Simulated assay, not measured.
Amino acid sequence: MPDLNPSAAPLLPTPPAYAAELATLRAEIDALDDALHDIVMRRAGIVARLAESRAKGAGPALRPGREAAILRRMLARHAGPLPRSALVRLWREIFAASTAMQSNFTVVAAADNEHADAVMRLTRAHFGGTTPIRAMTTVGQALAALLSGEAAIATLPAPEPEEREDAAWWVRFDANSLQVTARLPFLAEPGSHGVLVVSPTPPDPSGRDRTLLRIELTADFSHARLTRLLADAGIPAHSLQIRRTGEQALALAEVAGFWEADDPRLKSLAGLHVQRLGAYAEAEPG
Score class of each variant (00 low, 15 high):
residue 56 K to T: 08
residue 72 R to P: 00
residue 58 A to I: 06
residue 254 E to N: 13
residue 18 Y to V: 13
residue 29 I to E: 09
residue 137 T to F: 02
residue 208 R to D: 14
residue 144 A to C: 12
residue 113 N to Y: 00
residue 252 L to H: 05
residue 127 F to A: 01
residue 115 H to E: 01
residue 171 V to R: 15
residue 90 L to A: 13
residue 145 A to L: 08
residue 2 P to S: 04
residue 100 A to H: 07
residue 223 H to S: 13
residue 168 A to P: 01
residue 155 T to M: 06
residue 286 G to L: 09
residue 269 L to A: 12
residue 200 P to I: 04
residue 124 R to E: 10
residue 46 I to V: 15
residue 210 R to C: 05
residue 33 D to I: 09
residue 41 M to Q: 14
residue 237 A to P: 12
residue 41 M to G: 01
residue 254 E to S: 14
residue 132 P to G: 08
residue 231 A to R: 14
residue 36 L to E: 15
residue 44 A to N: 07
residue 143 L to Y: 10
residue 187 L to N: 05
residue 26 R to P: 00
residue 208 R to G: 04
residue 51 A to M: 12
residue 14 T to A: 12
residue 171 V to D: 08
residue 48 A to M: 13
residue 244 R to M: 03
residue 227 T to M: 11
residue 192 S to H: 10
residue 228 R to V: 06
residue 214 R to F: 04
residue 244 R to T: 13
residue 188 A to V: 13
residue 34 D to K: 11
residue 114 E to D: 12
residue 220 D to E: 13
residue 125 A to W: 02
residue 70 I to D: 11
residue 226 L to N: 08
residue 175 A to H: 14
residue 134 R to F: 09
residue 231 A to Y: 03
residue 34 D to Q: 12
residue 267 K to R: 14
residue 163 E to D: 06
residue 256 A to P: 00
residue 13 P to F: 09
residue 24 T to R: 15
residue 191 G to Q: 06
residue 239 S to N: 15
residue 5 N to K: 00
residue 149 G to P: 04
residue 273 H to V: 12
residue 170 W to I: 07
residue 107 V to T: 02
residue 64 P to I: 03
residue 166 D to P: 01
residue 208 R to Q: 12
residue 252 L to Y: 01
residue 276 R to L: 09
residue 36 L to T: 10
residue 256 A to W: 02
residue 225 R to V: 07
residue 81 P to H: 07
residue 282 E to F: 05
residue 27 A to T: 14
residue 87 L to G: 03
residue 238 H to V: 06
residue 104 N to I: 11
residue 275 Q to E: 15
residue 98 S to M: 02
residue 116 A to T: 07
residue 196 L to I: 10
residue 9 A to R: 14
residue 152 A to M: 13
residue 20 A to I: 03
residue 218 T to C: 03
residue 222 S to T: 15
residue 132 P to I: 08
residue 237 A to R: 08
residue 279 A to V: 10
residue 19 A to D: 14
residue 15 P to R: 10
residue 25 L to P: 00
residue 216 E to I: 06
residue 12 L to I: 13
